[in-house]
Simulated assay, not measured.
Amino acid sequence: MGMIDRLLGLPLGRGANVLRETIEVFRENTEAGALRDHEGRAAALAQFAAEFTPRRTGFDSVIDGLNRLPRPLLALGTIGLFVSAMVSPAWFATRMEALAAVPEALWWLMGAVISFYFGARHQWQGQAFQRDLAASALRLGLQARDAAGEDAAGEDATPNPALEAWQRQRR
């Protein structure tokens, strides 16, 4: 058997694959093509996931912590002013006189900075709330539609004139 294979030029181990390899020159192997497509899509999804996955570093954590400080510091500072006015009125009066010497333009600037900070935060929180409301309403609407569909399947909730006419003819 080995001598015939050598005379015909067919290697012994590959004799069964010659026909398949010849056909694959003209037509793609469907299974191999599907595997290549799957691997390509998996690689694309992995690239997208890597691109949009947030990378949290120590710097990000520090900045997030700093972003959470202004409101508590403003609230506690205001309470501290009231306490200091009661504990040491002379010290408090001196500080308030110093604040009275601050130019009006600087007060406007400080007001703008604080307004923009809290205004932007308020807007972002409001939009997040609206998105959550819309998602909840959609979820409730889908649940109600599903429940109505089950009721309609159990009993004829909506009349069908053609069906009623046919049933009258059959009686």
Rank of each mutant, 00 (worst) to 15 (best):
N29D: 14
I23Q: 05
W107H: 14
A157Y: 06
L19Q: 07
W108L: 06
R36E: 03
A144W: 05
S61V: 08
G141V: 04
Q125D: 01
R20Q: 13
R170L: 13
A44D: 06
F59S: 09
A100Q: 14
F52I: 01
M96T: 07
P89W: 07
M110V: 15
A42D: 00
Q130A: 06
T22L: 10
R14N: 10
F82V: 15
T30L: 08
A34H: 10
R95F: 08
L76Q: 06
Q143M: 10
P161H: 01
A135S: 04
L73Y: 11
Q125W: 13
V83I: 13
M86E: 11
E155G: 13
Q127F: 12
P161M: 12
A93P: 00
D60C: 00
P11M: 03
N29Q: 01
W166R: 13
M1H: 11
I114Q: 05
R55A: 05
D64S: 06
H122F: 15
P54N: 13
P70F: 14
G111A: 03
R20A: 15
L142C: 07
S136H: 04
A46S: 02
R168Y: 09
W108F: 09
Q169D: 14
Q130W: 09
A44R: 01
E104I: 15
A93T: 02
G141S: 04
A85D: 13
D37F: 05
G77K: 01
P103N: 11
R68Y: 06
G15E: 00
E164H: 15
H38G: 14
G2L: 08
L10M: 12
A153E: 11
S136A: 14
A112W: 05
R145W: 10
E21S: 01
E155W: 06
E21I: 04
M86Y: 05
S88T: 03
F82H: 08
N29K: 07
W124K: 03
A100G: 02
E97W: 14
T78A: 11
P89M: 14
D5C: 13
R131I: 12
E97Y: 06
F116V: 10
S61W: 11
R55W: 09
A162D: 13
V102S: 00
L81Y: 09
T30Y: 03
H38S: 14
T57Y: 04
A101Y: 11
E28R: 13
G149A: 04
E21T: 08
A90Y: 04
G119P: 00
F116D: 10
P161D: 12
F48S: 10
V113E: 09
L12H: 01
A165M: 13
D5E: 14
A100S: 15
W91T: 11
M96V: 03
L142A: 15
G9V: 15
L81I: 14
R41H: 05
V113Y: 07
D37W: 12
E28V: 12
I4F: 13
W124V: 10
R168L: 09
W108T: 09
A134Y: 12
A42T: 03
W108Y: 02
F118T: 02
Q143W: 10
G13T: 06
D64W: 01
R27E: 08
P159W: 15
M1T: 04
E51W: 09
E155Y: 14
M1R: 06
D132Y: 11
P103H: 10
A49K: 01
D60Y: 03
D132V: 05
L66T: 13
